[in-house]
């Protein structure tokens, strides 16, 4: 395990402090102009202690990568609209698949899908998005030479070719994740 840099420590601390503000409800008080100094100081101390221990697990790459308004806007837009829409479509499909009387219409299989993402957070975000969409679960991520592959359990296999299956499963998702992470 590498030793954490100071920039990694600082950005972990900022993230921790933002969550402290959200959880204690201070963010609402700041807008009303009645924030209490004691709570803020306690929050800074707590986030310093936590980030001393956890910075080296939290950040391995560029520390201030996500502190970029455009990236955060992209992240919000992706997670609310793009991902939300995919989620609703897949949920309805899966619900009717389960509730339909008669024989179950399932066609399970494991497909291998290439991805162009490189960074740790990008890969885990794509894998999490795929797992959260009902009907597909990411089983493993492997590096083979230059390329990265995802193994995906798919409940209704329509195509087995690597690229076509990739397009069907993660078409729009990956395009948007690549706008946020490398």
């Amino acid at each position: 395990m590498k030793k954490a840099k100071f920039s990694a420590f600082l950005s972990t601390m900022i993230v921790c402090f933002i969550f402290w503000l959200l959880l204690t409800g201070q963010i609402v008080s700041i807008f009303k102009g009645e924030a209490s100094i004691e709570v803020l100081i306690a929050g800074i101390l707590a986030s310093i202690i936590i980030s001393l221990f956890s910075a080296r697990f939290f950040i391995h790459e560029k520390a201030f990568y996500l502190f970029n308004p455009l990236k955060i806007l992209c992240l919000l837009f992706y997670s609310i609209f793009i991902f939300g829409w995919e989620l609703i479509k897949a949920n309805i499909d899966m619900a009717f698949r389960a509730l339909k009387p008669g024989k179950l219409k399932i066609n399970p299989g494991i497909v291998k899908v290439p991805t162009k993402l490189k960074s740790e957070y990008g890969l885990s975000m794509l894998a999490n998005s795929i797992t959260l969409t009902p009907g597909t679960i990411t089983m493993d991520i492997v590096d083979q030479g230059d390329e990265t592959f995802l193994y995906i359990h798919w409940i209704n296999v329509t195509v087995t070719d690597e690229n076509e299956a990739g397009e069907a499963i993660k078409g729009t998702l990956e395009k948007w994740v690549r706008r946020i992470w490398k």
Partner: peptide, 16 residues
């Protein structure tokens, strides 16, 4: 659902 993997698939429905 008939097998473990498909059951897990269906349970993500509840989760999301």
């Amino acid at each position: 659902m008939p097998d473990t993997f498909s059951r897990l698939q269906s349970s993500t429905n509840i989760a999301t």
